[in-house]
Simulated scan of single mutants.
Amino acid sequence: MFEFSPTRSKWEQIAETVTERITTGELHPDDKLSEVELTEEFGVDRKTVRKAVAALRDARLVITRTGMGSFVTHPSERGEQ
């Protein structure tokens, strides 16, 4: 199970971990982020995962398509080369 720091909110730490996975290439463009899998992996409430996904969306690292889920964006969609 994931070790959370008690000094920061869990959603921030989840968003940071997923961001790292995206920037290191562990997660690729068009990979789907499963809220259920993230909830199980981090041992948190779905509401916490949704807040983390919202932060990733605000950072343009993921895009959410209604009825389909959230997907990792392409670097060009993030303003990267």
Rank of each mutant, 00 (worst) to 15 (best):
M1S: 11
T66S: 12
V53R: 01
R46L: 11
T24F: 06
F4E: 05
E41K: 14
E41D: 10
T48R: 04
R50E: 13
E26A: 14
G79W: 10
S9R: 10
F2C: 02
H28Q: 14
E16K: 11
A52Q: 04
I14R: 01
T17G: 01
A54I: 06
H74M: 08
D30Y: 11
S9I: 06
E12N: 11
E12I: 09
G69V: 05
R78G: 04
E37M: 15
S70L: 03
A54S: 14
K47V: 12
E80K: 11
L33R: 03
T23S: 11
V53H: 00
E77V: 04
L38F: 04
R8D: 13
R21G: 09
S5M: 08
M1W: 01
T66M: 07
T64R: 08
L38T: 01
G43L: 05
P29G: 04
S70G: 02
A54R: 14
R8S: 15
T39Y: 00
T19A: 13
V44P: 01
H74Q: 09
P75A: 14
M68R: 15
G69Y: 07
R8F: 15
E35D: 06
T39I: 05
A59F: 03
D30T: 13
I22F: 04
D30E: 15
S76V: 14
T66N: 06
P29A: 05
E20N: 11
D58M: 04
M1K: 05
V62E: 01
E12C: 02
Q13G: 06
L33F: 08
T73A: 07
R50C: 00
F42Q: 03
V36I: 13
T24K: 10
A54T: 13
V49C: 02
A54E: 15
T17Y: 15
T66D: 10
R57H: 12
L61D: 00
F4K: 01
E37L: 15
T7Y: 15
A54K: 14
T66P: 02
E12R: 11
P29E: 08
Q81R: 12
A59V: 00
E26P: 00
Q13Y: 10
E3M: 07
E40M: 07
V18C: 05
F4V: 08
K32S: 10
V18M: 06
P29V: 08
E35K: 10
S34Q: 01
G43Q: 02
D31A: 07
S76H: 13
Q13E: 15
T19I: 02
I22C: 04
E12P: 00
M1N: 02
R65D: 07
P29I: 09
A59M: 10
E20A: 13
E41P: 00
E37G: 06
A15M: 06
E37N: 14
L38E: 02
R50I: 00
F71D: 05
G69F: 08
S70T: 10
A54D: 13
H74C: 02
E3A: 11
G67A: 06
A59E: 09
T64H: 07
A55K: 12
S76I: 14
V44S: 01
E20R: 13
E3Y: 06
E12D: 14
R46D: 10
T39N: 03
K32T: 09
L33M: 07
E3N: 08
R60K: 13
S5L: 14
S70C: 06
S34I: 03
A54Y: 10
A15N: 03
R8I: 12
K32G: 04
E20D: 13
D31Y: 10
E26Y: 12
F4Y: 09
G43K: 01
V72C: 03
T17C: 09
